[in-house]
């Protein structure tokens, strides 16, 4: 069964078509990468699937729910990590995770917070105020927040953005583990190595349209490329 089914999705901002009728589906437990140049429509697509933006045309089904009619049900099952997200600066890291966990089943909240603290790996700094965190610490807190709720579907926009090599690697492993535990992951990234390492399948999006879709290896073979970066350059720029 497909976790996400997108058919002819159109999203406009005024007279500008940001997404021009894209279609794709993601299987349960799969890690699906959406890659493309800046302004291609990746973030808009992710925001639509995260129930933040309405759609102008087409249809989206997430985990069996119609996005246009059952956004409330979808929000119970998904977790969204925006690219430039932040946290409430006057809270400590722990208080922030607790605040988020309180929106879910109260009996699961302590376990969620515990898991979140483990993922963030902030040590004693978890009890410091968020406004004292470095960019990398903030990102780890937000990744912890996104994955601690055991979502059926995680939508991650540039999950390793702002992290150093070591931290980024840990987050990638975590995403992989999360998917292995049954969570479907949809992510976008500018890091082609990351996409190649993480994703079961990818879609290349350019100017609001999907220009290529498939497994990374198959795409590399098709385009006689040594890596996804070459596929990206050949597909998007040539």
């Amino acid at each position: 069964m497909a976790a996400i089914e997108v058919k002819n999705l159109v999203k406009r901002y005024g007279s500008t078509d940001a997404v021009k009728g894209i279609s794709f589906s993601i299987n349960e437990g799969e890690i699906f990468g959406l890659i493309g140049p800046n302004g291609a429509g990746k973030t808009t697509t992710l925001r639509v699937l995260a129930t933040l933006l309405s759609i102008n045309d087409g249809s989206v089904t997430i985990l069996g729910y119609d996005l246009s009619k059952q956004a409330g049900e979808i929000r119970k099952l998904i977790s969204y990590l925006p690219e430039d997200a932040g946290a409430y600066k006057n809270l400590t890291g722990r208080a922030y995770l607790q605040f988020i966990a309180n929106f879910f089943d109260s009996k699961d909240a302590p376990t969620m917070v515990k898991k979140g603290i483990e993922i963030t790996d902030l040590g004693k700094r978890i009890d410091d105020r968020v406004d004292t965190y470095s960019k990398g610490m903030m990102r780890r807190l937000l990744v912890g927040r996104a994955l601690m709720t055991n979502p059926k579907m995680a939508i991650l926009d540039e999950p390793t953005s702002g992290l150093d090599v070591i931290n980024a690697q840990e987050i990638r492993k975590l995403v992989k583990t999360t998917a292995q535990a049954g969570t479907t992951v949809l992510l976008s990234s500018h890091n082609m190595l990351e996409v190649e390492y993480l994703c079961d399948r990818i879609a290349l999006i350019s100017e609001g349209k999907i220009v290529e879709e498939g497994k990374p290896k198959a795409l590399m073979e098709k385009h006689q490329a040594r890596n996804i970066e070459e596929v990206f350059v050949r597909t998007v720029h040539e």
Partner: peptide, 14 residues
């Protein structure tokens, strides 16, 4: 400004 709104709007809260 603190980029917390998007997260808040995707949480299961009316």
């Amino acid at each position: 400004e603190n980029k917390t709104l998007e997260t808040l709007l995707t949480l299961p809260v009316k």
